[in-house]
Design a protein around this nucleic acid. Structure first.
Lengths: 189, 189
DNA sequence: GTCTATAAATAGATAGAC
DNA sequence: GTCTATCTATTTATAGAC
């Protein structure tokens, strides 16, 4: 049994706290207490809160992208792959760990922290645009639809679905929003 | 020239700060400094931060609802009224002043503060469902679509559009997401 | 590498004078 | 109603011993 590396534990704890409380709402002290790692260790491994947050945000963004890539590259028609992405199992009531950072003033004000957030959303919109374009060529998606706009809609429904679910305290509106956009995407006679 | 009432100014300043920085990121001191009102006055008029925040959130929720009601009650087909609502002029990069509160852990943890947020989203989803149902009866909306799910999608696109815009630092993806969902809603031959 | 001590600034009030 | 003083806890570290 090798004990988990200290830096590693700090990063994972920070990821959790950023997800739960955001950057503004997460103090170094809270990270130390939840991780069980002392002040001295934390400041030995990281320069401070922004440095640790950058490590956490970067990892969260990478995981999110890898997961999305897997679903969008899978088998099936364009609409089926988008559906696989949207319907993947999620911790809906916790919200999106990357999307929530867009509401964090101190993250958005710092170009370094903001970078991964910006890139993640630029990437996913572009990736879904590609899927829709393929689908259009294959006749799986109505040719009247603009792939760029439709891709933005798909990503927005996901992000907005989280908002509705948290407001309601229930997964239901999230599921409805996803069902709704897939209903709209499905080609009709 | 009658000077603006002190409570009034405190509420308006708090509304601004909640919009900009959220509840967790807004201190009583910041409210006092921005409003130019002293500590003693603030605590004379309000019990404390939660009390003042409740007044601010309640007013923001009421305004948002009144605005939406006006657009959704206007003339035109169901899709036109939904378009009027979605395309209303907005300060997109500031985000939604109610939706952003769903990311605030201390707001969501307090039933009193959370109430107006929950009610606002329940109301708007229900109101748009009604519009879509009317549209369906009049043949303005494809009968194959589920009005409840489609209404959730419409609201989610708006909320998610804000997220995309803030992530990108640009209104463009917001506009694309709105255009995308209206494209999907428009009846096709 | 980790621990404890120290510290300036802020958060969120309360108390009492005016 | 408004102002200043005071107060406890937290925030975000730095310094130096071990």
């Amino acid at each position: 049994m090798i004990s988990v590396d200290t830096s590693e534990r700090l990063i994972e704890t920070t990821r959790d706290l950023l997800w739960e409380r955001g950057y503004v709402g997460t103090s170094p002290k809270a990270i130390q207490q939840r991780s069980g790692i002392g002040q001295g260790s934390m400041y030995h491994h990281f320069d401070g809160k922004p440095d640790l947050a950058l490590a956490a945000i970067t990892r969260t963004a990478e995981e999110l992208r890898a997961q999305a890539e897997a679903e969008l590259t899978g088998p099936g028609t364009a609409v089926e792959r988008v559906a696989a992405y949207l319907r993947r199992e999620r911790e809906v009531l916790r919200g999106c760990p990357v999307g929530r950072l867009t509401q964090d003033p101190d993250v958005m004000a710092d170009p370094t922290l903001r970078g991964p957030v910006q890139e993640t959303f630029a990437w996913i919109r572009s990736r879904i645009t590609d899927v829709l374009n393929e689908g259009r060529e294959r006749g799986e998606v109505d040719a009247v639809l603009d792939p760029v706009a439709t891709a933005a809609t798909v990503v927005a429904v996901l992000q907005g679905g989280y908002v509705l679910a948290r407001a309601a305290g229930s997964v239901e509106p999230f599921t409805q929003a996803i069902d709704g956009v897939l209903g709209l995407l499905t080609p009709r006679a």
